[in-house]
């Protein structure tokens, strides 16, 4: 039982340690800036999808720039 307790404490400490990992600094984002790191496969397709979504589903504003309720996007 003592072993289990130690294990639980170790696991908890380990899980919480991940909180202290820092996100990359602005000057460390070289790899993240590569085109293949975008969430969508194709940038144009992503833009078209977003446009359709925001104009057809009354969900204006909330993704990237633009939007704000004028109904002109």
């Amino acid at each position: 039982m003592r072993g289990v307790r130690v294990l639980v404490i170790a696991a908890a400490a380990c899980a919480c340690c991940s909180c202290s990992f820092q996100p990359p600094k602005p000057w460390q984002k070289g790899a993240l800036a590569k085109p293949e790191m975008t969430m969508a496969g194709d940038v144009l397709e992503l833009k078209l999808n977003e446009h359709t979504y925001t104009t057809k589903e009354a969900a204006s504003g909330g993704f990237g720039v633009g939007g704000g309720g004028c109904g002109c996007n």
């Binding site: 639980v8 908890a12 899980a15 919480c16 340690c17 909180c19 202290s20 820092q22």
Partner: peptide, 22 residues
């Protein structure tokens, strides 16, 4: 007792995480 030790470990890990953040 088990729960208390778990909570204690959690709290100490959190404080550690906060104190090490630059």
């Amino acid at each position: 007792r088990h729960f208390l030790s778990f909570a204690g470990a959690l709290a100490s890990a959190f404080t550690l995480a906060l104190s090490t953040a630059p």
